[in-house]
Design a protein around this nucleic acid. Structure first.
Lengths: 330, 330
DNA sequence: AACATTTCCGCAAACGTTTGCGGAAACATT
DNA sequence: AATGTTTCCGCAAACGTTTGCGGAAATGTT
């Protein structure tokens, strides 16, 4: 029952191994009749090609590596979910490796990818990664590397990421269009590049439109930070008509405060967020947000990967366009 | 630069391939001196064994398959995160395959695992899976299969899952200890086995303790269902002093209603849930919940897998004990 | 000094595929 | 009828590793 190989098939059919192999892949060098005989028997005995042998012979596999800081994150969750679908549809599999935001583990994961001779690697670097050489060395060995989400700032490499500036611009424009006049905007840690990009684009947009809105931009390092900050700033008398949240983490803190204070959306105050799209559905009414979902990003990353495998050698930097998803919080 | 093999090493060292191979794995048949020479050169030229060849030769790989309905789920997220850590620590990798709650895709994924000759498979079956034979066939081919979370009801197989009954009992006991008298309990779809187990254990516990609490148990199919149901049942005059939520999905709907109605935790009403542990932290105060986290489950599943690979042939059914995590909602 | 034992290493087969090449048979063209 | 062309198939090498076996040299035992 166990392992049926090309050899066994060839013996049963009085053919050579080569002919059986070619027949199974519809090679023109074998007659239609023989092809059918072979395929029929193969189906009957449930022949399955030995992937180990194929990999060795062809010197490549149909597996991609995915290196991320942690899978426990809404963004990576949607990204991987979408990427896996694409991969499966194209006959590839995904190997997941978490770096736990530790550069050393990241290097170790990279080594494993190389050792397993994966067909390509998708990687979202840790916040503390500063040596990109190990990644570049893979590229030199013809293993395509696609950076996504958190990508190196300067290096010439394939990058696929959210258009942070565009998302922030869209947020600002939405608030301006809604004629909000007293805006409390909460951003993440100042040293993160994502924070700087979003903050800059956000404020610049208000200037560009010559808006007369009062804009108060604050930073919060975590959900808990945001909560205490907001409990203070949203205390009555209420000075704001809307709160803008740069990320899901912040949105959660803001909503905790709003609930605790008994404020109601959208009558008492409006809320607009930049979000992966999961958290906003947890509230009633649903939060209006600018989507930076991993789904689209994954499809872009995957098609870029296929292009690389097909031989595209130049590098490319792709950005996914944000989309406004209307809820009832504005 | 590219591919350095045993052959190249052997030529550089004037040794045979076999000796080099053995030296690298500290085989006793090669002298200490030679071993060191070999290892030194190998390190210098950055030799990396060809995994394809090793797999073919040894006829097994260090990769596990993980088949789940969808990765976009808090439970699977924590499960996989934890499982990947364990695997990596033990030199294994994880291949993720989503079935999209479609039995046909599930079979296809299973076929791919078999074809890729993975070392073992972790699987959480879809809600519509009823033919377990394809899985059993893998077991016969000496590929261990560990079912987790959603497991087959009757078949003799390795199962690792949450102790649904124990979690429900703990929930009931908590409510009784808190002397709650008017309980609104929301459960999921009645046809799901998880619902039946939790509902039964929950109500039986109240009977067992001879509680005089008023218990109203309702079913809701989704978050939206729960919301509309609760908007009705929690309308004033408020008849309940606590709401019990069987799952995260239900908790979200309940909280939406509570927020919309402007009820405050825990003064106006209490909330207790059975949860994966993420959602309860999204609210203020944090929701008190019975944890059924995937972390512990993953560790149990992995060690069971290792036992299977080591030759343990009997099947085992493991349950993870739930834990009460106190928040401020009771 | 003769023999037995240990130490160390190489030969070669095997794992299951893919594929370049060559060749026999069948067919088509003069 | 002789030649060129096409159709169909098999031989054998190659991918890089592991490992049983055998054997030469070194060491130990009478």
């Amino acid at each position: 029952m166990a392992d049926v190989t090309l050899k066994k098939l060839s013996e049963l059919l009085n053919l050579s191994i080569s002919t059986v192999s070619r027949a199974l892949k519809d090679h023109a060098d074998v007659s239609e009749e023989t092809r059918n005989r072979v395929k029929q028997l193969a189906a009957m005995v449930d022949y399955e090609p030995n992937t180990y042998a194929i990999n060795l012979r062809t010197n490549h596999s149909r597996e991609f590596g995915v290196i991320i800081p942690s899978i426990a994150n809404d963004f990576y969750q949607s990204f991987i979910s979408s990427l896996e679908e694409e991969a499966r549809y194209n006959g590839y599999s995904l190997i997941i490796l978490q770096s736990g935001d530790d550069p050393a583990t990241e290097i170790e994961n990279l080594r494993r990818c190389k050792q397993n001779r994966l067909a390509g690697i998708f990687v979202s670097i840790t916040s503390r990664t500063n040596d990109l050489n190990p990644f570049m060395r893979l590229v030199e060995q013809d293993i395509p590397v696609i950076f996504f989400d958190i990508v190196p700032a300067f290096e010439a490499c394939n990058k696929v990421c959210v258009d942070d500036a565009a998302a922030a611009v869209m947020a600002a424009e939405t608030l301006i269009a809604q004629k909000k006049k007293n805006i409390l905007a909460i951003f993440g840690k100042n040293q993160l590049s994502i924070t700087r990009k979003r903050l800059q684009a956000f404020t610049e947009t208000f200037n560009k439109y010559g808006s007369d809105a009062q804009l108060n931009s604050l930073h919060a390092g975590s959900t808990a930070d945001t909560f205490t900050l907001l409990m203070d700033h949203l205390a009555s008398p209420l000075k704001y008509d809307v709160v803008f949240c740069m990320s899901d983490e912040i949105l959660i803190g803001v909503m905790k405060a709003i609930q605790t204070l008994g404020l109601r959306l959208p009558q008492d105050i409006g809320v607009l967020a930049i979000s992966e799209g999961i958290i906003p559905t947890y509230y009633y009414p649903r939060i209006t947000y600018i989507e930076t979902s991993g789904f689209k990003l994954a499809k872009m990353a995957f098609s870029r990967m296929l292009a690389c495998i097909a031989g595209s050698s130049y590098v490319q930097e792709l950005k996914s366009e944000p989309v406004l998803v209307a809820g009832g919080s504005l």
